[in-house]
Nucleic acid binder design. Sequence first.
DNA 1: CGTCCATATATGGCATGGCAACATATTACG
DNA 2: CGTAATATGTTGCCATGCCATATATGGACG
Lengths: 117, 117
Amino acid sequence: MPYMDVKPSDLEWKKGSAELLILSLVEARPRHGYEISKLIEQRSGGAVHFHVASLYPLLYRLEKRGWLQGRWVEKSGQRRRRYYRLTPQGRKILASQRRGWQTFVEAINRITEVEHA
Amino acid sequence: MPYMDVKPSDLEWKKGSAELLILSLVEARPRHGYEISKLIEQRSGGAVHFHVASLYPLLYRLEKRGWLQGRWVEKSGQRRRRYYRLTPQGRKILASQRRGWQTFVEAINRITEVEHA
DNA sequence: CGTCCATATATGGCATGGCAACATATTACG
DNA sequence: CGTAATATGTTGCCATGCCATATATGGACG
């Protein structure tokens, strides 16, 4: 039976938000993919979850665009990790996306507000 | 040259928000597709725009799911219009989606907040 | 020492949903 | 009569996220 799930949109809302999330999380310091995915879950209290199958390809895309720069780090007693840091261009994009997200949310709120009389 | 657009996500953010927008707009009274698309543009100040190629198929989906009920209305001096009204089930879904949207936005904001020291 | 779990990265194929482009009608206005 | 605004509709493409699966390492436990 399809459409049993009352909230299919919860899944769809995520689309496009991943970029902003990742850029934000590597703003303060470089992080690796797995760390980013854990942070998203923790900080959202489980409300938002990005699968690794979405995350890694997205990291490659962001690096390809020059917004992130990745670097392999190998430490004894650890599996190799690829740390991504925000490039100057990425920093500009992040600022722009933060503004855009605010504008978007305000617009959605304005439209979906309960009509008063 | 690809990726010239600094904000590809602005387009992606919309994905999934359309359901909430439409359900909200037919909450107070029945509306037809064209009216809904105009309202979205007006109330968002042009920040959000849904193309008809997204809108009409979505209206059919929502009707198919029993969240909306459509009805043709013909008036002299007007092209025929299909007015959609919110069903009782649709009303429940709308309430649920409003809550879900709030939760989602709060989660995103929490994750993307600038880190304080 | 073997097994299981958490860590960590990677990929092929699928589903969803918005968009561009195109298409059809009707009414109003000059 | 041409053009714009209104109003609905469809086909095919593309971007993005998900599922399932795969590989590899280290630590804990028995």
